[in-house]
Design a protein around this nucleic acid. Structure first.
Lengths: 224, 224, 224, 224
DNA sequence: AATGAATGAGGCTTCATTCAT
DNA sequence: GATGAATGAAGCCTCATTCAT
């Protein structure tokens, strides 16, 4: 992950490693600033200072402030994709876990992703910047929702495709919102409770869909 | 919170009809700008132009840009409070509606609130500014959640108080997130579907709690 | 020239006149800075300070630094055009002055133009900026040379058109260069002598062409 | 002016072949950049890249960017001096060429100097930098004009010394300006025509002075 | 000696806020 | 009160120069 192959012992990690470390520190600092004050209120100078470097170095790696947001988001997305790829295979296995377990696993996975740092808060608290930073029409949630829709296709096959997208969007937005609250909270027990409650909510919401049919008797299912 | 008379700090609330109209136009213009480009990217000049006035007039009514956000949020909150007051009395009536209807009514009421203009998007899309604008530790959602907790007290009396707050927060954040998506969508049918789905979700989530007990058999209820 | 029509006596010149004066002061200051240190070495802050205003005011009138150069050049060009228009009519008159007088008049006119301020030095000492400031392919000298070519058409009708452009260019570049030296010199007598010498040079150069034919015997005329 | 040995301030003049080549490449690259975009718009990085080295190497040889301009100008001047030295001796010879031939030779020599590379354009297109780079009060043209004055002393001995300087300056500025236009032109035939025209102009201008007296009847000679 | 990553001063420009009219 | 020109602090970004490798 760090360098390609083991350099001659005791040498030559320098520039590469130095650079890489600096890059990481900058990204981390940016995420912290973005999470704490918002993208717009964060200054590149402050980010550099927090990263222990100079503005110049920031611009060595990133063409502008937006690009910092973009890099953070991309990183996060890459990891999120990995996660999904993993749960996908798990979920697809002939003897895969029941869907409830899948919800638990997914929420936990995302919650873990969030805990890894302030990146999560930086991204979801500044979503309007995503479009600018990742290409005009791009939306992170859209991408994640598309993957959730695929899961639904397996676990709620009778759900009408159009409805499926609606449900996927609902799931993603809800999970995101609740995990965001959890991530923002200073109080760890509360965070944990929030994560747990998110699971409860999602499972109650999805249960009727997952039952294999659209649960005709459920009072909450719209007739239209 | 800000009493009607006694025009303290935030400059004076205009009385003359002319002024009042201008004040409203400014707030409306600000909400539109905030919703469209975000608070930070909106300039006071643009807001004034959109309102058909001059910067000077904006500063006649508002001490600074943040105050515009604050005023929009306050207005929104005031209306939300009214709504709650109303549903409260309805819900409290001896022969009040069943809780499911209450969910429908509330979601619809909020959805209507959103439709009244871009204020909703302006507020929820720029939440980080809420603290700055409304006082350091203030959070809109907290206030709304507190009122939801009161409703829960009536409809899910057996829910442990601590849990109640958690549930209230969950409900508010979820509803907010989903209505935000609905409000943001360009596509009206999708918006409507989203609102409908929000009701479904909330009802499925709350049903076990509302059943009068913590629904011991529900698989989603955490044991801890 | 200043305001369109006499305002009610004792009133309403204010804003208009104020603004206009500021605009002029800024342009003057810019010309001085550009002439003294070059466009690139001049800072907008210094220009504003020299003009007795703030940067903001500079940007109220000009979108960027280049535009200052552009405005100075345009102004100069407009006046130069006026001059030419004038000499044109004089030169075209049935009993117009002999061409030698025309050279004197033109050089004097331009020399006067230069004396009006540092604009001349600002422009000709920073010519490379002309293209950027006035539109990609634009060149001031080209425009002036084109007008000189018209004069040549009258006074040296036998000169081959292609040659005419060459001569016009030569005249303009030479006059410009010499007047530039004169304008740059701190020593007024030297400046005057330089201007006089420029006339001498141009007249000696043009005499053979003006004689009505290409002066076959002139040893300096190339055979090719 | 800067003696060849004794490598004082401006860092050391390289001796090793490798170094020498690099030094030359850097200077050439700098001249090209300066000619193409101007001194201020050229970055040291771009120069290094064009020279196929690194910034560090540039600073090995030159203490700062100005010094690059200075070195280019010095080099050019050195060659110009050589040229003059040569024509001097030619012109001084008992049976030297007539002055007209000398003009042709000189213009051609300078034109050749220009063609040797972009150095000429780099220097004359960025004259404001000459003072900074070569010492506060220094002016290249002054030095060249001084040498031309020496030639005049021989060929127009009756010219009053004060006048002589004026004429020398006029000659230098004119020649420079015209050759600059020629050097800048993309179109080779036009360049050649321009050079030819410059000879024509100079010969017509100098003829009366060279005739050995101040040509009393010449209409262009000022009486003052 | 060569390299190029790191530094940070400083320039351009924006825009919240003030204030003269 | 209303207007919008004026102000200037502050942010983004560039690039000359330094310095560790």
């Amino acid at each position: 992950m760090t360098s390609r192959d083991a350099p001659r012992p005791g040498r030559r990690v320098p520039t590469q490693a130095r650079s890489r470390a600096r890059y990481d520190r900058i990204l981390e600092a940016a995420a912290e600033e973005f999470a704490a004050r918002g993208v717009d209120a964060s200054t590149v100078d402050d980010i550099a200072a927090r990263a222990g470097t100079s503005v110049g170095s920031v611009y060595q790696f990133f063409p502008n402030k937006q690009a910092l947001y973009g890099a953070i988001a991309s990183r996060y997305l890459a990891r999120a994709r990995e996660l999904f790829e993993h749960w996908f295979s798990v979920a697809m296995a002939p003897e895969g876990p029941p869907w409830e377990a899948l919800v638990d696993l997914t929420v936990d996975a995302f919650a873990a992703l969030d805990r890894d740092g302030p990146a999560f808060r930086a991204i979801w608290g500044n979503l309007p910047h995503a479009a600018q930073a990742l290409g005009e029409a791009y939306a992170i949630n859209r991408e994640i929702a598309a993957r959730v829709a695929l899961l639904l296709e397996r676990h709620a096959p009778t759900l009408h495709p159009a409805r499926r997208d609606l449900v996927a969007t609902t799931v993603v937005e809800t999970m995101t919102a609740l995990l965001f609250v959890a991530a923002r909270a200073e109080d760890p027990p509360f965070s944990d409770a929030m994560v747990a409650e998110a699971k409860v909510l999602l499972k109650r919401y999805l249960a009727p869909y997952a039952r294999g049919a659209e649960a005709p008797r459920d009072p909450g299912t719209p007739t239209a």
